[in-house]
Write a protein that binds this DNA or RNA. Structure first.
Lengths: 148, 148
DNA sequence: GTATAATAGTTGCGTAGCTCAACTATTTGC
DNA sequence: GCAAATAGTTGAGCTACGCAACTATTATAC
């Protein structure tokens, strides 16, 4: 009883926080991307993850909880724009490792500054306690939605 | 220094939690919606909010951080399907209050059960502490992204 | 060793989900 | 009473993304 009531509160809060946060973030990224870099939010996410280390289409799809075809298409655009290179894995030729080009690296640095400054500004006025609870909550969120 | 480093951690965590959570949720809603109710995720959100009380296109757009035109179109589909009615506000005739029809209420009840059971199952194995931190974190998230 | 299954990636097609700008219909404020 | 603001709608157009079908490669089964 008590448990299920609390559950309902969690679910309500989820609907009221995550989808709006996401919509607003996407909208902001789009604005930056379109105005200055002609890049979509999805491409931004792909670049973001490639930047953190070597990656493949499948790994990116898994990490961002989307389909391989969607990632494949995003990567394709980035390759055509000279921001990403598809390289080779001689041990397993099905695998196609992805990496940033120098230009990709450069673009990433500036788009990152802008996007993350915006995000940063959002979090700026939070207290230390709020930040810590937020961090913990987001980690839980990540865990909860990462499998399956 | 310390502050900005912590900020970076928060931002990273944000990227790794919110967008994937959202993508997976949308995907699940779509599955339920398409398979059983022929309804999109956006329509689901609109119905969800109307169910909680009277609402208008503008209020819904504000709450879900999207544009009025997007909401207007979603509402239009729901009206054509007989799930929502546009009524009148005689005090201000610009305002068009929205309400569920009986059929809309009925459909909502069952789609809700299904969608929220899925969400509920995700949160099921969390400890009480995790749930509380999650709740607090999501409230912070909501606040942070609620004003323009 | 070959057939079969599994895996990585791509492509075409269709549709949902927006946004922007332009428009109508009201109401509010000098 | 007229300009500005507000609520809502509509049309054009583009992006995102899933599904299904396809190729290429590797792993497994017999």
């Amino acid at each position: 009883m008590k448990k299920s009531k609390f559950n309902q509160i969690i679910i309500d809060k989820y609907w009221e926080s995550v989808p709006p946060a996401w919509r607003q973030t996407r909208s902001k990224i789009r604005t930056i991307a379109v105005e200055r870099f002609q890049m979509t939010e999805e491409q931004f996410q792909v670049l973001r993850r490639i930047r953190r280390g070597s990656a493949s289409v499948s790994a990116l799809a898994e990490a961002s909880q989307t389909s391989r075809s969607a990632v494949s298409k995003a990567v394709d655009v980035l390759v055509r724009r000279g921001l990403v290179v598809r390289s080779q894995d001689l041990n397993d030729r099905r695998n196609i490792p992805l990496a940033l080009t120098d230009e990709g690296q450069r673009v990433m640095d500036s788009i990152f500054n802008e996007a993350e400054e915006w995000l940063s500004a959002r979090f700026e006025h939070l207290s230390q306690e709020e930040l810590e609870a937020l961090l913990e909550g987001m980690e839980t969120l990540r865990k909860v939605f990462s499998n399956s």
